[in-house]
Design a protein around this nucleic acid. Structure first.
Length: 566
RNA sequence: CGGGGUGUGGCGCAGUUGGUAGCGCGCAGCGUUUGGGACGCUGAGGUCGGAGGUUCGAGCCCUCUCACCCCGACCA
C-alpha cells in the first residue's frame, strides 16, 4: 500500500476527548473515527489489524472443532421474552419496530438465536457435542461507553457456543476453549491472565475472564503472587483480619454523641473497625434490604445481588432509609421487624461487636449474632481487598486492573430448558442440552494490544496482528536513485507477498519517521542517499533503537529472514 | 440516572466591559528545503452545537434544549 493513497491520515494533535492512550494513538494513527457515542468507523489500518486478530481466532476455533456460522443481528423480541433475558438486559437491549409494528432487538449476544437454531436441528445425542461460532457485530446500549474501543455500543465479537449431552461433556468443551483462548492471546502478542469471574445472574457454575493487565482497565483483579490464583474483585474471596472471639458478654448501651460513621465510633470508643458492625441499606427490586457487615469490610454488591437473586440492586436513598424507620448513622439490626436482613459471614465468625443503637447518639456494645438479632440470609458478601489473606495459600493478596478481552461461561441447561433445546439420549429420554458460551471482543483486544504495546512515539504492534509487516521509508525522493531503489524494493517485496506500507510521500524526514513510529509497523526499511552510497539500506525494528545497515544485494533475503524468522 | 466538564474552520485552541470572528497545525498553489513533525509568499475553508429571548447590535448576557467527554451508578 502506498501511504500517499491510504485512507486515514495521521495527525499530530491529540484529539481533546480521548484520554486513554489506545484511543489517542488509534485516532492519531488514522485508524478509527467516532460517529457517535460508542460507535466507530474502522479505517483501513485498523481493519487490517482486526482481520489479523479474527483470522487467528478463526484458526484456533477451527482447530478446537468449532464450525463457523453467521446468525442474524436482527432478532424478534419474542425470543428474548422466551428466555426471560429481555428483562435482565433491560435498557442495554436496543429495541426497534418494523413496519408492521412488530418489536425487534439488535442482538447484544446470540445465545437465544443459537439455542433456538440448535434446538430445532439437534435431535439425538449423536448430534452432540457441537461447537458453533461466529464473528459478528453486537449491539449493546451501554449506559456509558468509554475509553475509545474499550467499551462501545456497537462492536465485533467472536462468540462460540458449546452444546453437550452432560456436565462432563461441557467440562471438555470448556477446557478446549480455555486452551484455544490461551493460544489466541499468545499469538496476538497480548499477555493475559485467566481469572475467576462472576457468571452474572443467569450463568452457570464456572466462569473465567481473560484479562490484559492495564491501569486503564475497568475491572479490578485480586490476585495472589505466591500461589498464582486470581479473581475478579466481583468474585474474589479472601481471609479477613480476625475479629474478637471471646465469650459473648451481655449487651450494653453506650453513648456515642455525634458518631455516625464507623471511623467516628472507633475513634470515640477506641475500637478497631474489625469489632464493629456496619449497616448498609439497599433496594433490591423495590424491596428494602438491611445489610450487616463488619466495619472494616466493604460490601461486594455483585455477591449481594447473587445472594438475593434479584435483578436490580442499588443503594437505598436517605428517604427510603428514613421510611423504613431507621435512624441513619445509628442503625441497628437488633429488633428489626419486617425488613429483610442479610448478614455477612464475617459477623457470624466474631463476637462482642459494637453496633448501632437505633436511636441518636447511641451504640450497643457486645452485640452477638445470632443471639441478639436474626438474619434472613447469611452469605459471603464481602469485598476482597489487597492486603487480605489468600484463601488458597494464606499469602497477602494484591490488586491490579485489567481489560476483559475474553470471557468463558458454563451456562448449563438454563437456556436450553427455556428455549426448548432438548435431545434424546441413548435410553430414549429427552434431556436439555448442556451449554457453554465463549466470547472475545475483537476491537477491545486490539485496543488492549495498543494500550500495552506502545511508547511515547506511538504504537508498537505485536508482529502477528500488525496491519503491515514492513514500513518502507525512502528519504529524499527527488534523488532518482532513492526512488528507483525504493520502487524496486516495493515491487519485489510485494511479489513475495510481504505486507508493505510504502511511504511514497514527498515529506521531510522527521514527518516520515514520526509517522512510522506512530503507526508502529514492526520493521522499518530506510532507503536514503546516505546509505545507498555505501551500497546499503537500513533496517530497524520498531521495538528497538538501533538500525542496521544491509548490503543492497542481501536486502531482500535479510528482510525475509527478519519477517519470517523473528 | 447522580456529579463534573466541553461545544468557535479537518485537528488543537484564543476571543477583554456586548461593536466587522482570530491564531497554530493541517489543506491547496508557488518557491527554497529535507537523517526525527523545516521556511517564505499566496489562498480556500466558520449557520460560533441548536431554538427562543434581551439589545440599535450577541461567539460573549438570559431561558430552554441537544451532543460529546470524565467520575460514579450500570455492564454476560
Amino acid at each position: 500500500m502506498r501511504l500517499s493513497q491510504l485512507f486515514g491520515k495521521t495527525q499530530r494533535e491529540i484529539p481533546a476527548d480521548a484520554d486513554t492512550i489506545s484511543h489517542q494513538l488509534m485516532l492519531r494513527a488514522g485508524m478509527i473515527r467516532q460517529l457517535t457515542a460508542g460507535v466507530y468507523s474502522y479505517l483501513p489500518i485498523a481493519l487490517r489489524s482486526m482481520r489479523k486478530i479474527e483470522n487467528i481466532i478463526r484458526d484456533e476455533m477451527n482447530k478446537a472443532g468449532g464450525q463457523e456460522i453467521c446468525m442474524p443481528v436482527l432478532q424478534p423480541i419474542e425470543l428474548w421474552e422466551k428466555s426471560g433475558r429481555g428483562a435482565s438486559f433491560g435498557k442495554n437491549l436496543f429495541r426497534l419496530f418494523d413496519r408492521k409494528e412488530r418489536e425487534l432487538a439488535l442482538g447484544p449476544t446470540h445465545e437465544e438465536v443459537v439455542t433456538d437454531l440448535v434446538g430445532r436441528s439437534v435431535q439425538s445425542y449423536r448430534d452432540l457435542p457441537l461447537l458453533l461460532y461466529q464473528i459478528q457485530t453486537k449491539f449493546r446500549d451501554e449506559p456509558r461507553p468509554r475509553g475509545g474501543l474499550v467499551r462501545v455500543r456497537e462492536f465485533v465479537m467472536k462468540d462460540l457456543y458449546s452444546f453437550d449431552t452432560d456436565a462432563e461433556g461441557l467440562d471438555i468443551s470448556y477446557r478446549k476453549m480455555v486452551n484455544a483462548y490461551k493460544n489466541i492471546f499468545s499469538r496476538c502478542g497480548l499477555p493475559v491472565i485467566m481469572i475467576e469471574a462472576d457468571s452474572g445472574a443467569i450463568g452457570g457454575k464456572d466462569s473465567n475472564e481473560f484479562m490484559a493487565i492495564s491501569e486503564m482497565g475497568e475491572d479490578e483483579i485480586i490476585y495472589c503472587e505466591s500461589c498464582g490464583k486470581a479473581a475478579n474483585a466481583e468474585k474474589a474471596r479472601s481471609i479477613k483480619a480476625k475479629a474478637d472471639n471471646s465469650e459473648p458478654r451481655p449487651m450494653e448501651e453506650v453513648s456515642t454523641p455525634g458518631c455516625k460513621t464507623i471511623d467516628e465510633v472507633c475513634h470515640y470508643l477506641k475500637l478497631d473497625p474489625v469489632n464493629t458492625i456496619k449497616a448498609v441499606f439497599y433496594m433490591a427490586d423495590d424491596e428494602f434490604i438491611f445489610v450487616c457487615i463488619r466495619g472494616d469490610i466493604d460490601v461486594n454488591e455483585v455477591k449481594l445481588k447473587n445472594s438475593l437473586h434479584c435483578s436490580d440492586l442499588r443503594l437505598a436513598t436517605e428517604e427510603e432509609v428514613a421510611a423504613a424507620g431507621i435512624t441513619a448513622g445509628f442503625a441497628s439490626p437488633i429488633g428489626l421487624k419486617n425488613i429483610k436482613t442479610v448478614v455477612d459471614e464475617s459477623i457470624a465468625s466474631g463476637t462482642n461487636f459494637v453496633a448501632g443503637g437505633n436511636k441518636y447518639d447511641t451504640h450497643i456494645k457486645n452485640v452477638n449474632f445470632p443471639r441478639d438479632f436474626k438474619a434472613d440470609i447469611i452469605a459471603d458478601i464481602a469485598l476482597a481487598a489487597a492486603g487480605d489473606g489468600c484463601i488458597h495459600c494464606g499469602a497477602k493478596l494484591l490488586a491490579t486492573r485489567g481489560v476483559e478481552v475474553g470471557h468463558v461461561f458454563k451456562l448449563g441447561t438454563f437456556l436450553s430448558e427455556k428455549m426448548g433445546a432438548y435431545y434424546i439420549d441413548a435410553n430414549g429420554d429427552s434431556k436439555p442440552i448442556v451449554m457453554g458460551c465463549y466470547g472475545i471482543g475483537i476491537g477491545r483486544l486490539m485496543a488492549a494490544a495498543v494500550e500495552i504495546n506502545h511508547d511515547d512515539k506511538g504504537i508498537i504492534w505485536p508482529k502477528n496482528i500488525a496491519p503491515y509487516q514492513i514500513y518502507l521509508c525512502p528519504l529524499f525522493l527527488e534523488n532518482p536513485l532513492v526512488t528507483e531503489k525504493a520502487e524496486s524494493l516495493y515491487r519485489e517485496l510485494q511479489e513475495m507477498e510481504m505486507e508493505v506500507l510504502y511511504d511514497d510521500r514527498n515529506e521531510s524526514t522527521g514527518i516520515k519517521f514520526n509517522d512510522a513510529d506512530l503507526l508502529g509497523i514492526p520493521l522499518r526499511i530506510t532507503v536514503s542517499p546516505r546509505s545507498l552510497e555505501k551500497g546499503c539500506i537500513e533496517v530497524k525494528w520498531r521495538s528497538e533503537k538501533q538500525s542496521e545497515l544491509v548490503a543492497l544485494d542481501k536486502a531482500i533475503e535479510k528482510i525475509k529472514d527478519m519477517i519470517t524468522g523473528k
